[in-house]
Amino acid sequence: MPLLLRGSVELGLIYGLTALGVLITYRILNLPDLTVDGSFVTGMACAAVIAQRGHPFMSLAAAAAFGAAAGCITGFLHTKMGIQPILSGILTMTGLYTVNLYIMGGKSNISFYGQANIFSAASKLGISKLIAICIIAALSIAFCCVFFKTRAGLAIRAVGDNEEMAKASSINSDGSKILAFAISNALTAISGAVLAHYQSSVDVGYGNGMVVIALASVVIGESFPVSKGISISFAFAAIGSVFYRIIIAYALKLEVLPTYGVKLASAVIVAIAISLPRLRAMLPRGESRHSDA
């Protein structure tokens, strides 16, 4: 496999975990969550600090725990305090900035080259970086697929579909939302943690614009002509992320767009993909609607 393609697949699967998280809040729960920009770096920071002390695998667990905690705070602010979901996310994200720097001991940048990380541990077992990342991605997707078929997962899906109906069926809608935010941000934090291991370093600047990147991955994944079952959606969110990385990597390499164009490109992809149904409805002929059915 060409080097750049392999690198893009690796990075795409790593960032793909964030896409899984965003899929949960944005698509299943139907609530946009901006916490992601902060919790991604929280994951990176936990990974670096704990891996530095020689516990590479525990660092992933810690990242997940801190990410979940961040998600709980956003969920709490939204459900119990009645703050709008977007503002709740912004508040948590802003607060996380300080928390992230605190975790990193006041430093904005940490390196842990040469220390044991998950990839060095994997290579001892003869597992390459790409395979290791595939395993992590597969486990995460499998977890999501299984979880959203359990009682708690189904409750989250019910709340996302029709909150009133869910409440009427005596589902704890606030609890379900908080749980969804927690899982979403735990996945995001694991995504950041794996990236930290991949790069052997962390910088607080890495979370910028992560929400839109993840959303772009989700909508690219949704554009594939496959059935819309929940398990398929998760798999294709990760695949969408891989495609997004490949597109960005080649676009940057060939200077199709300057680096400062990445954000606009992501925003345009998301805006077009999300507005497609409306655009289609505006068309005078009903043909395209049939093809979608």
């Binding site: 080097l3 750049l4 990075l11 600047g205 680096t259 990445v262």
Partner: peptide
Amino acid sequence: HKNANGEFSALPSIMQGLVAD
């Protein structure tokens, strides 16, 4: 010449692109 323009999450891709080139 390459410039990440503050887009840190694109830095790994930029570097991999250079190595691949």
